Computed example of a mutant assay.
Amino acid sequence: MDMSPNGIRLGAVELRGWQVHKLDPVPDDVSGQWSAYLVRVNYDFAVADDIPAPQWAEVRFEFPPGTFVADALPRSVEETTSAAAYTLTSQLNFVRREAGPGRWRPGSAADTIPMPVFLSRVECTGVGGDFVRWRHVGALTGGTHTAGLVLLVPHGVEALAVVASGTYHLETPPELKLRPVGRRDSFTVALPTATRAQQQPLAVVRERRERGAPRIFISYAHDNREHKAAVRQFHDFLTDWGADVHYDQNGLDSQRNWDKWIVTGILRSDFVLPIASPAYLAASQDELPPGQHKAAEFEYLRLADLLHRERETWTKKILPVILPGRSADEIPLSFLPGIVTHHTVTSYSAEGARTLIAVLGGGRAAG
C-alpha cells in the first residue's frame, strides 16, 4: 500500500492510499516500451448527515506525458451493481472473473480483482489518454469508494508524479451566491520494480507528513554549478532530517508539466523556502537576462501573489534561507528581509540550521 495520497483533501473529496502491482506478462506490443501496473484507487466523499448530499462529485487523476491509462474500472455504471470479482485479459482489459483457472498465475493481483457495490451512477472518462476521471451522479454516499486502473508507464520510471483534483455540485440558494470549492493537489507514487513486487502489494515508507514532519517546497534559481550543488546539499540535509521535500531535481526520469508541478507543490506545502542568490533577487526585480531563470521567476511571482492576497498566512509559510556564502541582501524585498525573520544556514547540520529546524520542527504553519 502506497500511502502518498492518503489524507489529501480536494474539497469534498479525500484521497486514501493506493495499491500498486506490477503486471507480468504483458502484451508484446506493450513490453517493448512500457511497464504495466494494476492500481487500486481509494477515495472518500465527505457527505454530512445534516446537509443535502451533492448532486454529483468526481475525482480526476492526471499522469505525466508518455503514461497511458489502458483501462479503468468502473467504466460506466447506470444502476446499483453488486460486488463482483474481475480479472484482466491478455490485452490488459478488465472483465468479470469466471469460475475456474484464469490466465494469470494463482496469487497474482490480476487474477482476481474484487470490486465493491456501486450505489450511484458512475461515469468514467480518459481511458486511452494520460488521465482518468470518475464522476458519481445521484444518491451519493459517504465513506470510501474504490476504483481500479491499468497504467502503462515508460520503462525505467520508478516514481510517478500524479496531479489530483476533486469537484462536486451542491444546490444552494441563489441569493447566497455560494459555489462548491474543489482544488488540485499533487503527490508521488512509488512503482514496484523488484520481481517479488509481482506477488504482493508494494510496501513503501509512509508519507512523512503522517509522522508530523512538514512538506517543504524549495524555491531557488540555478545561478551556477556551485549554487545548484549547495542547494542539493541543503535538500539532502532536510530529507535526512525527515522532511518531505519538493525539489525540482527529483523525479526527472519522466516528463513534467512544470506549471502544475510548481503551483501544486507550493499550495500543498507547509513551508516554502526561497534560497537567497543574485539570480533569485534579479527575478524579483525583473532584471533577469531574456529567457534565463524562467522557473525561478515563475515561482517568485506565485509567492509574491500569495503574500499579497493572504499576507498573514503566507508570511508564516515562506521562510527565506541564506546558505553558506550567500547574503541577506539577496533576499527579495517582497519577503521583507528587514522586518521578517530569515534563516541563515552556516552548515548542513541541525546545529548549522538551528533556527530553521526550530520552526520546521514545530509542525505546519497556521492556515
Rank of each mutant, 00 (worst) to 15 (best):
201 P>Y: 07
185 D>C: 04
73 L>V: 01
340 V>P: 00
94 F>E: 04
241 W>G: 03
280 Y>R: 11
229 A>M: 08
216 I>H: 04
97 R>E: 02
235 H>T: 06
193 T>S: 11
266 I>L: 14
74 P>C: 13
196 R>I: 14
192 P>C: 02
231 V>E: 03
55 Q>H: 13
216 I>G: 01
77 V>P: 09
238 L>F: 08
139 A>M: 08
143 G>K: 00
93 N>G: 11
68 F>I: 11
297 E>Y: 13
147 A>L: 01
46 A>D: 14
276 A>Q: 11
16 R>V: 04
139 A>T: 04
132 V>N: 10
267 L>E: 06
290 P>F: 14
345 V>S: 04
266 I>H: 07
105 R>S: 13
354 R>Q: 14
14 E>S: 14
230 A>Y: 00
282 A>G: 02
123 E>D: 15
153 V>M: 07
157 V>M: 04
194 A>C: 01
65 P>E: 14
345 V>G: 10
300 Y>K: 06
9 R>V: 15
359 V>D: 06
248 D>A: 09
152 L>M: 12
114 P>Y: 06
91 Q>P: 01
208 R>C: 00
347 S>C: 09
339 I>G: 01
7 G>V: 04
15 L>S: 13
223 D>G: 08
283 A>V: 05
38 L>F: 06
244 D>I: 01
247 Y>H: 09
47 V>P: 00
323 L>R: 13
277 S>D: 08
27 P>Q: 11
217 F>R: 10
254 S>F: 07
86 Y>W: 15
116 P>T: 03
90 S>R: 15
246 H>D: 13
363 G>T: 05
336 L>I: 05
181 V>W: 12
149 L>D: 03
140 L>N: 00
291 G>R: 04
214 P>V: 13
89 T>E: 10
139 A>L: 04
143 G>Y: 00
333 L>Q: 14
237 F>S: 03
274 P>A: 05
109 A>R: 11
123 E>Y: 10
292 Q>A: 12
107 G>N: 01
291 G>D: 14
80 T>E: 15
313 T>Y: 01
147 A>D: 01
199 Q>M: 05
175 E>D: 12
101 P>V: 08
365 A>Y: 08
217 F>C: 08
54 P>F: 08
337 P>S: 07
187 F>I: 02
332 P>H: 08
35 S>M: 10
